[in-house]
């Protein structure tokens, strides 16, 4: 086992463990903080794969923006700082069964896919970001998704503002 593999296993374990903590923590704020750790773990895995751009994007968007958004959302919630009810309900074994089933299905599909054992080949060349940027605005490649992404972001923005602001100024 190389040092890289040991680091990967450690980071993966931390990521999964904090993901479990996200759903089992009693305080919502703690759940959000475990989520941050989990997301950071994913960022480190990106770095291990030499995908620098995605590492910073993961930190910038997921930790710097989405986690903050979630924390703000928690602070909006009324009287939800402390959860007192039981963590499990009667159907928990059904849920567990379903989860195991989905995992097994995914594992079977992935193992039968030839790409699962293939290594990525030589490390990504330094100009990968340049290629990415060129393809984004290339009419033969991703220019449509690029512009559609912009429209979708706009739709998200308008929707969110409509929901959160509209009814307050009802007289307008």
């Amino acid at each position: 086992m190389t040092a890289l593999q040991i680091i990967f296993l450690f980071v993966a374990a931390v990521t999964l463990a904090s993901a479990v903590m996200v759903v089992s923590a009693r305080r919502m704020m703690h759940a959000a903080l475990w989520l941050v750790l989990s997301l950071a773990g994913v960022a480190v895995i990106f770095a291990l794969l030499d995908a620098g751009f995605f590492t910073v994007v993961q930190v910038l968007v997921y930790i710097g923006a989405i986690a903050i958004l979630i924390i703000f959302a928690i602070m909006l919630t009324r009287k939800a700082m402390e959860d007192v009810g039981p963590q499990l309900n009667r159907g928990w074994w059904l849920a567990a069964l379903a989860a195991v089933g989905v995992f097994a299905g995914l594992a079977v599909v992935l193992v039968s896919w030839p790409g699962v054992n293939a290594s990525a080949g030589a490390g990504p060349d330094a100009n990968l970001i340049v290629t990415f940027g060129k393809d984004l605005v290339d009419p033969h490649k991703f220019v449509m998704p690029f512009e559609v992404a912009s429209v979708m972001l706009l739709a998200a923005l308008i929707g969110a503002i409509y929901v959160s602001v509209e009814h307050k100024g009802g007289q307008k």
Binding site: V57, L60, V61, G64, A65, I66, I68, L69, F72, A73, M75, L76, L136, F146, A149, S150, L153, L154, A156, L157, A160, I161, S164, V165
Partner: peptide
């Protein structure tokens, strides 16, 4: 606060593109 964070998120994602 939530609205600011949301507007920020949209612009952040956009700029990263």
């Amino acid at each position: 606060y939530y609205v600011y964070a949301l507007v920020f998120l949209v612009f952040d994602v956009e700029t990263i593109f």
